[in-house]
Amino acid sequence: MATRSRKTTATSTTAKSTTAKKTTAKSTTAPKAASPAPTATTPAKPAAAKVVPRSAPSAPATTVVEDVTPTLAQAPIKKPELIDRVVAETGLKKKDVKPVVEAMLAVMGRSLAAGEELTVPPLGKVMVKRVKDVANATVITVKVRHPKSVAGSEKDPLAQAAD
């Protein structure tokens, strides 16, 4: 609708300037009257056409439901790096950690593919939102609800008893 209003405004402006040019041209060629009052031979100024722009339909007021802060995507952690981090965290040997991490990832992958929810306290709750079959794979969209408490700040009571 705004385009239509602009065209109307542009057309009326062009018409005004064309009329003004014609009036100016006629007044310069016509003999000037002795009295300052307009006479019958002097053309009167045309009435200005009032252009009323159309108002756009009122849009509903927008409200912000939640404030989202964007985060920059970092490089993904691959399985060898994950195993190295678990080795550093636990202090166990890599040959002992690797089969456990691979088995855990296999179990989690099968559970999510079956549509099961996982509740793993340090990680949080993992819920399947969407499953889509594509040519070479199954795309599973999950939602992770991570608790706000800092992981690692709370000591495991069993680990304290073993010390």
Rank of each mutant, 00 (worst) to 15 (best):
R6C: 02
T9S: 10
A10Y: 13
T14V: 08
S17M: 11
T18G: 11
A20P: 04
A20I: 06
T23S: 05
T23H: 03
T24N: 14
A25P: 02
T29R: 09
T29P: 01
T29C: 05
A30H: 12
P31E: 10
S35P: 00
S35H: 07
P36A: 04
A37T: 10
P38A: 09
T42R: 03
T42I: 04
P43A: 06
A44E: 13
K45W: 02
P46A: 07
P46Q: 12
A48C: 05
A49L: 15
K50H: 06
V51A: 01
V51K: 00
V52P: 01
P57E: 12
S58P: 07
S58F: 04
S58R: 15
P60L: 00
A61R: 15
T62L: 15
T63R: 15
V64N: 09
V65M: 08
D67V: 07
T69V: 14
A73W: 09
A73K: 14
P76D: 06
I77M: 14
P80F: 04
L82H: 03
D84H: 11
D84Q: 13
R85G: 09
A88I: 06
A88C: 06
A88M: 06
T90N: 01
G91M: 11
G91A: 03
K95C: 14
K95N: 14
K95Q: 14
D96M: 03
V97E: 06
V97Q: 02
V97N: 02
K98I: 01
P99I: 00
V101L: 00
L105C: 12
L105T: 12
A106N: 08
V107Q: 13
V107T: 14
V107M: 11
G109R: 14
R110M: 08
S111H: 04
A113E: 12
A114R: 10
G115K: 07
E117T: 14
L118R: 01
V120L: 15
P121H: 01
L123Q: 04
M127I: 01
K129G: 03
K129C: 03
V131N: 00
K132D: 08
D133W: 00
V134L: 05
V134Q: 04
V134I: 10
A135K: 13
A135G: 06
N136T: 15
A137C: 05
A137R: 09
T138L: 09
T141Y: 11
V142Q: 04
K143C: 03
V144K: 09
P147E: 01
P147R: 00
K148P: 04
S149M: 09
A151Y: 15
S153A: 05
E154S: 07
D156P: 07
D156F: 00
A159P: 05
A161I: 09
A162Y: 11
